[in-house]
Design a protein around this nucleic acid. Sequence first.
DNA 1: CCCACAATTTACAGCGCTGTAAACTCATTG
DNA 2: CAATGAGTTTACAGCGCTGTAAATTGTGGG
Lengths: 353, 353
Amino acid sequence: MRRVRLEDVAKHAGVSMKTVSNVVHSYPHVSSSTREKVQRALDELGYRPNALGRRLATGRSGMLALAFADVSLPYFSELARVISGEASRRGYRLLLEQTDGTLAGERAIISSREAGLVDGVIFQPSVMSSLEIAQHREEVPLVLLGEGHAPIGVDHVMIDNIAAAAAATRHLISLGRRRIGFAGHEEVAQSATSSYRLMGYQQALEEAGITVDMSLLLPSRAVSAQEAAIVVGRALDDGLRFDALVCRDDLAAIGALRAIKERGIAVPDSVAVVGWDDISMASFTYPSLTTIAPDTPSIAKIALDMLEERISGFEGMGRHELAPWCLVVRESAPIGPASPTIARSPARAAGRH
Amino acid sequence: MRRVRLEDVAKHAGVSMKTVSNVVHSYPHVSSSTREKVQRALDELGYRPNALGRRLATGRSGMLALAFADVSLPYFSELARVISGEASRRGYRLLLEQTDGTLAGERAIISSREAGLVDGVIFQPSVMSSLEIAQHREEVPLVLLGEGHAPIGVDHVMIDNIAAAAAATRHLISLGRRRIGFAGHEEVAQSATSSYRLMGYQQALEEAGITVDMSLLLPSRAVSAQEAAIVVGRALDDGLRFDALVCRDDLAAIGALRAIKERGIAVPDSVAVVGWDDISMASFTYPSLTTIAPDTPSIAKIALDMLEERISGFEGMGRHELAPWCLVVRESAPIGPASPTIARSPARAAGRH
DNA sequence: CCCACAATTTACAGCGCTGTAAACTCATTG
DNA sequence: CAATGAGTTTACAGCGCTGTAAATTGTGGG
């Protein structure tokens, strides 16, 4: 049984294809008698529009690609959820693309062989250089997410990593901690993300007159809870002592938490821990995690605003927007005697909204 | 600057469109001189095929929809990763659809207004009845995932929940536990998932001659770590005592773990806990979680095998396949003196592979 | 040198839909 | 009663690509 097409409905109702199309899309200037007649034909034949046909005719696919390393990482999956919601609210569907954090995977996203499949791409690169991204764009509207050094010509949304890392570190200082370590950044091939966060950490320490002790930097072989647990555990076994830990992300923090507690050290009493991302699990670890929470709904909104402008033809310079964040204080580094009000990013001055 | 089309390349190379198309798709019967000439034109003009055009002409979109409640839930995001990998290995891309676990959302998936967008759908329903699913199918090739009572006519992959729940419970019994609770299932509107797992739990208890104590059933208002923590915490505060807990899923187990430890009760010494799903976080909680691990790569493989058969025209009865699982023993319910070998599903007899 | 046959290449009609511009209705109005 | 114009409806040419069948070219045999 063949699919019913617009033409079949048109014949059945005794009108032109275009009129049927108008009814299907509830175009206003159709007489109600015609509309009714067509609607009846539509129902009788059980017509359903073929997306591909329309998409080819209009040149719009109604789809966006969402590309990042790995959906199974909590931050990405939670981001995907938010972006997916925002996209469907605007009438787009989301194509999921994973790069596995490899250069090959990321190249495949940026210089896709096929055109026309998606109207735009939201891409959080892990390893690709901004230079290479800049060269390969123009193919399709693109918005970059995350902390890389984004190329000047491409739209980009991020949170101010240096400021947020400094706020997290300051929070620990306000708790009276002085031997504050940093854990979970890459041992080699350090990502932009890690280096910004390290900068903010260092900045807050210097501000407070604390000398940065390089032995308190605990890089791991890979960005994962597993590797963070190993490196923090080894450091403790080697006799290294610290009274607080800023972690590159919540996964690293969860790994660190495990390593610390396994050795019978109390969190937060002996070691306070802060994470980054505010993944949903951060509320359920024991103790729960104090963490930097990027405002993902804002990120999604800003990214889609910019992407939609590009899709509708905007060709100006790349815009670089900062999304809000705040420090969520939980048990792993609770409010202390000298704690100021909760840290958060400044209200955005000339914000989109 | 207009996009380069097949026709432009054809003109430039002095051949027909179809020949260019053949070169693009490396169709074998093209003389090498022609091939070279066309390739040169292709490179000079920087041609990239338009996916929509081809898709319309071939009637295949090369896309699959993956639909479930919420990507941000760890089990789903990890499943999405595996399925996405398997799909792209077979040349499909994945469209992400979230239902939020609502009936409206699930209906939207099953009776999509538009046709032709995707070649097939992989769908894990949460609330829709099998009756309704059965009625609405035929639209597009469909494979169901998960523990629902799948309609007879639709392909379906699941793990044997009753057997796995019984194995988990038996493991606790082998540890000498006798007051074994079950936590995290829905208080009202119990899902098929929960009820199968409860059945297996009950079966193992009866097998061992332990009477099921209804007060040890700790349902929660919603399936989440949060709610599980609340209900387990309240039970403990009310003086309820148990020496083990089977949890509906790892999220519930993590919530339970938190509630138990907050009250100073030792896991696994006083209370052993088992979860379900083996989400990656299960290795990093402290103590780490003993849990039922469904073989998600197998699930993905079986689902895609069946879906591809449907896509290429198979119209037989619905197939109902069981995927393997095993009990992963970790710290929250470690191997005990009487522990048998590790429980796992029987090797599949007449398996696809 | 012509023919049968295989290897290439081509023309063209769609795939299902929409944009455009032209055509048609049918009250109103001068 | 014809002209006017707003409101509806239509014909048709694509959108970019592929399947099909027919046309062309090349090859070795007779």
